[in-house]
């Protein structure tokens, strides 16, 4: 599935909020672009590089260094499994396995129909709730593989309606 075209006007409006030629703005620019576009398409990055006056290679190196930036389109829904230590000792790896099994994708991937992206995060600091799954921004604490399976199942049903 090819990525949808990028609205350059939206990209430029985001860039206009940041001073041109200031390399220190790079990470804030990437965050704002991603907030606008849900991911960082190549055209957006090329324009950001020229706006900030940094080589494209440099910008690409930075964007791929940080875990928070996504260079591929992400699914309609985001399921994030917290892999913090507290969640780990309370069974987070089993949650990832469950989700991977149910969705037929690996963590970091998106289902072929672009409905859901499965991600992991290294702790969101809500350790008392562990193990924790964040489904489209909503925290689901004390998660079990069985409950997660049903949560994902519900989504799949909605998809086939």
């Amino acid at each position: 599935m090819s990525a949808p075209p990028v609205d350059i006007g939206r990209v430029d409006r985001v860039l206009a909020r940041h001073p041109a030629g200031v390399q220190g703005e790079l990470i804030n620019v990437l965050h704002d672009l991603q907030a606008e576009l849900r991911y960082l398409p190549r055209q957006a990055l090329e324009r950001a590089a020229s706006h900030l006056g940094v080589p494209e290679a440099h910008l690409f190196g930075v964007a791929t260094f940080y875990e928070g930036f996504h260079l591929e389109p992400r699914g309609e829904h985001i399921c994030t499994v917290c892999m913090g230590t507290a969640c780990h000792v309370r069974g987070a790896p089993r949650l990832v396995e469950q989700a991977e099994r149910d969705l037929g994708i690996r963590a970091g991937q998106t289902t072929p129909d672009m409905r859901l992206t499965l991600e992991t995060v290294n702790c969101v600091g809500a350790c008392a709730l562990g193990p924790l799954v964040i489904f489209d921004g909503k925290y689901h604490g004390n998660m079990t593989p069985d409950r997660l399976g049903r949560l994902i199942g519900k989504l799949a049903k909605k998809g086939s309606e």
Binding site: R42, L45, E56, A57, L59, F60, G61, T64, F65
Partner: peptide, 16 residues
């Protein structure tokens, strides 16, 4: 040229 990725996934590469 640039470094792409980090940690055990770091590699040498070109923009995009």
């Amino acid at each position: 040229l640039t470094m792409v990725g980090r940690g055990d996934k770091k590699r040498i590469g070109l923009a995009f």
